[in-house]
Amino acid sequence: MKVFSENITVPKTAIDENGHVNNIIYLQWCIDTAEKHWFAKSPQHYQESHFWVVLEHTITYKNPAFEGEELLVETWVTVAEGVKSERHYKISRPKDGMVMVTAKTLWCFVELDTQRPARIPEEICRLFV
């Protein structure tokens, strides 16, 4: 499993009226981390000729997080076949190991010029799976 991760300090802007991180913010952090993973690992020519679109999100909220807490967002790809890829996420609090969110997203690989789904190249599969 090739895990990509980043640390986040929960900003005040992520907090909802209940005093903890808003659910949609967790999803945004997942998407942002997936994009950072793509741009960090994929060859430039694929970045310029292809992009990913979301087909489906599944997210499980386990525990709340609060302003100022340090969180770890981890992501990894489990499957890349045909035009689709399944990516998983875990958001946790490193100081005690508490998991806030687990999630997965089904992505579709798209050719920029045609705006149509494209088969995921073997080179990309090897880099991420």
Rank of each mutant, 00 (worst) to 15 (best):
Lys36Phe: 04
Leu27Asp: 12
Val99Gln: 05
Lys95Ile: 14
Ser42Val: 12
Thr105His: 12
Ile8Ala: 03
Ile59Ser: 02
Val77Ser: 10
Asp16Val: 00
Ala103Val: 01
Lys41Phe: 12
Ala34Trp: 02
His37Pro: 02
Val10Ser: 08
Ser5Val: 00
Arg116Met: 12
Arg126Ile: 09
Glu35Ser: 12
Ala103Tyr: 02
Pro121Met: 02
Arg116Asn: 13
Leu127Pro: 04
Met1Gly: 15
Tyr61Leu: 05
Ala65Ile: 05
Asn7Asp: 09
Val10Thr: 07
Trp29Cys: 08
Arg116Lys: 15
Pro117Thr: 03
Gly19Cys: 05
His20Ala: 06
Val77Thr: 13
Ser85Thr: 12
Phe66Gly: 08
Ile8Thr: 11
Thr60Ile: 04
Trp76Gln: 13
Thr9Phe: 03
Ile124Asp: 01
Ala118His: 15
Tyr89Leu: 00
Trp38Leu: 07
Val54Pro: 03
Arg119Lys: 15
Val83Lys: 14
Thr102His: 10
Ile31Phe: 06
Ile15Glu: 00
Ser42Gly: 10
Asn18Cys: 00
Asp113His: 09
Cys30Asp: 05
Asn7Ala: 05
Trp107Phe: 14
Thr102Asn: 15
Gln47His: 15
Glu56Thr: 10
Gln47Ser: 11
Met100Phe: 00
Arg93Met: 10
Cys108Val: 15
Ile124Leu: 14
Phe39Val: 08
Glu111Ser: 12
Leu106Cys: 03
Glu74Lys: 15
Val54Arg: 09
Thr75Asp: 06
Ala103Ser: 13
Asp96Ala: 07
Gln115Val: 01
Thr114His: 07
Asp113Leu: 03
His50Cys: 13
Thr9Tyr: 08
Pro94His: 11
Glu69His: 08
Met1Gln: 11
Met100Gly: 12
Trp29Phe: 06
Ala40Gly: 07
Phe66Glu: 07
Phe109Gln: 10
Thr60Gly: 02
Asn23Gly: 09
Tyr46Arg: 13
Tyr61Asp: 07
Leu71Asp: 13
Phe39His: 15
Lys36Tyr: 07
Phe109Gly: 11
Arg93Ser: 12
Asn63Val: 01
Ile25Trp: 05
Arg126Cys: 08
Cys30Tyr: 09
Ala14Met: 02
Thr75Ile: 10
Ala40Tyr: 01
Lys84Met: 06
Trp76Arg: 12
Glu17Trp: 05
Glu35Lys: 05
Leu55Val: 08
Glu81Phe: 02
Ile15Gly: 03
Val3Ala: 09
Gln115Lys: 15
Val53Ser: 14
Ile124Gly: 07
Glu6Ile: 02
Ile120Cys: 11
Thr105Glu: 08
Ile24Lys: 01
Cys125Gly: 07
Asn23Tyr: 04
Asn22Cys: 03
Ala103His: 02
Glu17Arg: 14
Phe4Thr: 05
Ser42Thr: 15
Ile24His: 01
Ile24Cys: 01
Ala118Pro: 05
Glu70Met: 11
Trp29Asn: 03
Val3Gln: 12
